[in-house]
Amino acid sequence: MLSQRWLRLMPLHLMLLPALALLLIYSYGPITGILIAFQNFMPSKGIFGSPFIGLDNFKYVWDLPDTRQVLTNTVVIAFFKIILNLAVPILLALLLNEVRIKLFKRSVQTIVYLPYFLSWVLLGGILIDILSPSQGIVNDIIKSFGFKPLFFLGDPNWFRFTIVATDLWKEVGFNTIVFLAAVTNANPSLYEAAVIDGANRWKQTLNITLPSMLPVIILLATLSLGNVLNAGFDQIFNLYSPQVYSTGDILDTFVYRIGLIDTQYGVATAVGLFKSIISCLFISVSYFLAYRLANYRIF
C-alpha cells in the first residue's frame, strides 16, 4: 500500500526536479554568494579563498559621500512612481468607463497600452531623440512658443521629473486595464437603483464605481509597497549620464558601477545585500497587508 502511494507521488517529485535544480543553482547560488559582502573579494582566490573582513564593506559604503544621496534619489523616484502609477490609472479607468463608443474606448486602451510592451532600450532611444535640446521635437515645440530649450535628460533639476513622467507613459496602460476590469465588476442593479433615487453620474461614480474598484486598488497599492527601493534600473541606466548623478543615480545603477565598472565586488555586493534585506522586509509586509486587507494569497 505504502509503495503504491509512493509510486503514485513519484512523478510529482520528478516534475519539480528541473525547476528546483535551476532555482538551486541560479537563485540560491547567488544567495550563498552574498558572503562576498563580508569579504575583501579577489576573483583569483574565489569566494572560498578571499579573506573575511567583517562589516568593513558596509562601513566603507556608508562613509562614501554619494551613498546617502543615492538612497534619497532611489526613495524619492520610487515614491513618486508608486503614487502616480496608482492615481493616474484610476482616473483614466473612471474616464474610460464614461465612454459609450466602444471603438473609441478600445482604441484609447490599445494606444495607451503600447509602450508597456517595449523595452527601455527602445523607449530610451526614442526619448533621447525627441527630448534632445538641439534637434528633438519636444524642444522644437517649446522653442516655437518662445521659451528656451529644456535639458530634460541632462539637467539635474529636470531629470527626476523626466524619469517619473516617462515611466508613467510606459506603465499607465497596464494598471488602467486592471482597474477597468474592476470597474465592470460593479453590479448594474446598483446603478439602476441610484438613478431612481436621483443620483447623478458624479454621485454614481463616487458611491458605486469607486467602491467597487476599492479591493483592486487596495491590492495594487499594498503590492506596490514592495517597490520602495526599485526606482527602475532599466529606465535610469538607459537615460542617465554623469551630469545627473546628483538627482538620478539610484541604488541599482550605483551597484552596477561600483561592481562591474570599478570591480569592487565586495562593496557592490554589500550595497546589493542592503537593498535585498530592506526590499525583502517591504515585500513581506506588502504581502501580509494584501492578505489582510484584500484577501490576497500568493499561493
Binding site: 547567488p30 554568494g33 551597484v255 561592481g259 565586488y265 546589493g272
Partner: peptide
C-alpha cells in the same frame, strides 16, 4: 521572489 543575492553574486554564479 522575496530575496535575491544581487547583481555581483548573480554574475559570479
Amino acid at each position: 521572489i522575496l530575496f535575491n543575492g544581487g547583481l555581483i553574486p548573480w554574475y559570479m554564479t
